[in-house]
Computed example of a mutant assay.
Amino acid sequence: MSSEDYDIEPQGDLQYVVHLDDGEESVEAWFRLTPEVLAQLGVAEGGEADLVAATVDFLRRHQDVADFPSMVEIEDVLASYPDYEETVTTRR
């Protein structure tokens, strides 16, 4: 899935809504970030949307668009996927 297949819209308070479309399914997923996770992942101010994009790309490799949860907590992704932190910090 390329970035042309989804749109990221900032909603304020470190929340982003992502509209994903794989040609068959369209879903909306909210991504919630925290200052703690941003610090842990070394995300500079202004890089939050890039982290959301990296997370969408990461999750897309692990599940179909139809299986995306409606709310994605980055802490949960960190806890669920041992390779997530390395993957998103290497990508940026």
Score class of each variant (00 low, 15 high):
M1P: 12
M1D: 04
S2W: 05
S2C: 11
S2P: 15
S3R: 14
S3W: 05
S3F: 09
E4M: 11
E4D: 15
D5L: 08
Y6S: 06
D7E: 14
D7P: 00
I8G: 11
I8M: 08
E9Y: 05
E9M: 12
E9F: 05
P10H: 07
Q11W: 07
G12I: 09
G12D: 12
D13G: 06
Q15W: 04
Q15C: 13
Y16Q: 10
Y16L: 05
V17H: 07
V17R: 14
V18W: 13
H19R: 14
H19Y: 11
D21I: 10
D22Q: 07
D22W: 03
D22I: 08
G23F: 03
E24S: 14
E25V: 14
E25Q: 15
S26K: 09
S26L: 04
V27Y: 06
V27M: 03
V27A: 10
V27K: 13
E28W: 11
A29W: 02
W30D: 09
W30G: 06
W30I: 10
F31L: 01
F31G: 06
F31A: 04
R32G: 11
R32V: 13
R32P: 00
L33I: 02
L33Q: 05
L33F: 01
L33V: 03
L33Y: 03
L33N: 04
T34H: 03
T34K: 02
P35H: 00
E36G: 03
E36M: 05
V37Y: 04
V37K: 02
V37T: 11
L38V: 08
A39W: 03
Q40M: 06
Q40G: 00
L41G: 03
L41W: 02
L41H: 05
G42P: 06
A44C: 02
A44R: 12
E45M: 01
G46E: 11
G47M: 07
E48Q: 14
E48S: 08
A49Y: 05
L51C: 07
L51E: 01
V52T: 01
A54Q: 04
T55E: 01
V56G: 00
V56N: 00
V56S: 01
V56H: 01
D57Y: 00
F58L: 00
L59I: 01
R61G: 08
H62C: 05
H62E: 12
Q63M: 15
Q63D: 01
D64A: 14
D64F: 03
V65D: 01
A66E: 12
A66Q: 09
A66L: 05
A66F: 02
D67H: 07
D67Q: 07
F68S: 06
S70D: 10
S70G: 04
S70K: 08
M71L: 11
V72C: 05
E73K: 12
E73P: 00
E73C: 02
I74T: 05
E75Y: 02
D76P: 01
D76E: 11
D76K: 07
V77C: 06
L78N: 06
L78C: 12
A79S: 12
S80K: 14
Y81D: 04
P82I: 06
P82K: 07
E85C: 12
E85S: 15
E86S: 15
T87R: 13
T87Y: 08
T87V: 13
V88Q: 10
V88G: 10
T89P: 13
T89Y: 14
T90W: 13
T90I: 04
T90L: 12
T90V: 07
T90Y: 13
R91P: 08
R92M: 13
R92N: 08
R92F: 15
